[in-house]
Design a protein around this nucleic acid. Structure first.
Lengths: 345, 345
DNA sequence: TTTTCATAGCAAAACGTTTTTTTAGATAAT
DNA sequence: ATTATCTAAAAAAACGTTTTGCTATGAAAA
């Protein structure tokens, strides 16, 4: 492509102002010793000439570029895609405010690509890692990132030994909100659709379910636990089959994710079960779909956009520090009441 | 943040190989006159030292960075968000293959931000513009981009005078697939849920609907056109109200988008209408939700991922050319048969 | 034998900043 | 009167590449 009209540089301004270009730089960055008169003059010239700093040249100095890299695994099919887009949206919010660009990557694990490579190649010192691939051993990744002092934060709890920053959601209180709601409605026979038990979210919700039932003096019946395997629609359908095959049926169910719920509902509906008339269901996530399914899902909302925002704020804060302290941020959930639950007669 | 261990540069390699660093550059770019022996030697050293070119330094030379910028308006709420993520996913595919980064922006129109500013600020000469905000007058934007010879392509047809590149979908043949299906099932009273008529997609589907009905010798009844205003869930609900208020009801409906369909279905279901028993419905988009709603939607699939891929390929091809020719790519749709349609008894 | 020409490689300039160093005058402290 | 300190601004170095121009060789052409 043909070279386009050259942009205004600091040198152009310097020439017009009759000063050294380094002085212009000082003015632009509000540093050093420059008299007020000169400072104002330079600023004015810069403005009228329409000066925009060249980020590449700036980047060459400090070997970094103001970008936040959001990285997720190649095939994020096991989580619904709307889950990501909301988080990304939150990241984008703060990137915009802080004048960072947002770069999106997916790592090809089969190629053995590492997080550090992304950072190094794209000169980004801010990595937000969608930590949802629990088959990946993060140990080496983390070691390298730490050694090179790259700021990174994980979306979702990290289960390994190392101390790393992450943002997650308070699953216990979330499940508590869900179960309290069902119990308030008079339900005592409460089933569970479990998600991916190798994922922290899946496990925590499962554990919380048991503990809270106990807390309320209710029996935990493993026969009423339906295991989908993942958080997907398909897993919900699998769980539905288990539900249908058991004699002992609950009057209410807590589902570990909206996707599970949607898949579950689709199957049991074809077998004549009506929600909420035959079965109350409270779900988890408040995905975009939750509000448009019939019946609309009563669900525990994860503040996904806010998760993204917090992640971005944290990763930028970290990279601004000489030697950063890791931090864990746990966000609260909120119960959204809709149509999938009903008082027990 | 503390300076991390310095990366290997071209100079390090030059020193070890005992040559000038410019020679190493020539080797790396496979240019100029370098003997085969030396070339291989340098390459080997580079590999063992783990050399990675510094994109910033490279960018400083040609004043550009290998990034594709995907830009959409501040509030893309009028289109469903899953629409975007699939396109983005396609863009990401080819970015990955071509070693470009993908940067995502939303333009704050209230702040008067321009597309060119994004290009200039982030040194990207590859812009993919989500052209869905028809309240924005693109005239000035396009003029500036063209003057500066920035490669850009629009997602969706461009209605203005200027010749610009865009990717869109063959709405006519899409609607034809939908209507042929309904007619094959025996329907003759066919209604329409219209989308945003100020958007090319909305208008084209509307026009196609009329024309194809005529082609089949069927009457177009404006009483059976339900106008939602946008492509949203809410608009679908609005359309449903119109449907319910009319005496004359169709036996089948073509809906301009899945979101419209989902909103529509939700409302009429509460009034006792069953799809597909009382009413067949064929939709447009094949959004992620279409397959998980009850009944699962028979719908005309837009190849969203492929749209993203084509857009990315085109924008990169353009920017590689000295003076590029604009191009319009129209992709074919595909009818996905599911549960929302039924033969007329 | 001299001139051209292709090959091989080095040296230097350029890209646009930021940062460090230098110069120099003015004021304050010894 | 001399040194130190502060302010102000210029000059130079640095970041890691690519590109341009130069030098030097050997071979082919005149």
């Amino acid at each position: 492509m043909a070279k386009s009209k050259k942009n205004i540089t600091i040198k152009d301004i310097a020439k017009k102002a009759g000063v050294a270009h380094s002085t212009v730089s000082l003015v632009m960055n509000n540093k050093g010793y420059v008299s007020d008169v000169l400072r104002k003059k330079v600023l004015k010239i810069a403005k009228t000439m329409g000066y925009e700093p060249n980020l590449i040249a700036r980047g060459l100095i400090n070997q970094t570029f103001p970008v936040v890299a959001a990285i997720f695994p190649e095939n994020p099919s096991f989580f619904t895609i709307t889950y990501f887009i909301q988080i990304i949206s939150g990241i984008q919010d703060v990137c915009k405010d802080t004048d960072n660009a947002l770069i999106i990557f997916n790592l090809d694990q089969t190629q053995g690509e590492s997080y550090y490579q992304v950072s190094r190649k794209w000169l980004s010192k801010n990595l937000i890692i969608m930590n949802i691939d629990y088959t990946r051993d993060m140990h080496q990744d983390i070691k390298v990132l730490k050694k090179n002092n790259i700021s990174f934060v994980l979306i979702n709890k990290y289960l390994g030994q190392e101390d790393v920053s992450y943002i997650n959601v308070d699953n216990f209180s979330g499940v508590h909100q869900a179960l309290k709601h069902l119990i308030d409605l008079g339900h005592t026979d409460i089933g569970l659709i479990a998600g991916d038990l190798s994922a922290p979210d899946g496990m925590e919700r499962f554990e919380a379910f048991k503990k809270i039932l106990q807390e309320y003096g209710l029996a935990f019946n493993s026969e009423m636990v339906y295991k989908g395997g993942y958080f997907s629609f398909d897993s919900g359908e699998k769980a539905a089959l288990q539900f249908l095959n058991c004699k002992k049926k609950p009057t209410a169910i807590f589902s570990s994710s909206d996707n599970l719920s949607i898949g579950f509902m689709r199957v049991i509906k074809t077998k004549g079960y009506s929600i909420p008339d035959d079965l109350s269901l409270v779900s988890f996530d408040d995905s975009l779909e939750a509000n448009y399914v019939t019946p609309r899902l009563t669900t525990v909302r994860q503040p996904l956009v806010e998760i993204g925002r917090e992640a971005a704020r944290l990763v930028l804060k970290q990279s601004a520090e000489k030697r950063y302290k890791t931090k864990h941020i746990t966000l609260k959930t909120e119960l959204i009441l809709r149509e999938s639950t009903k008082a027990l007669k």
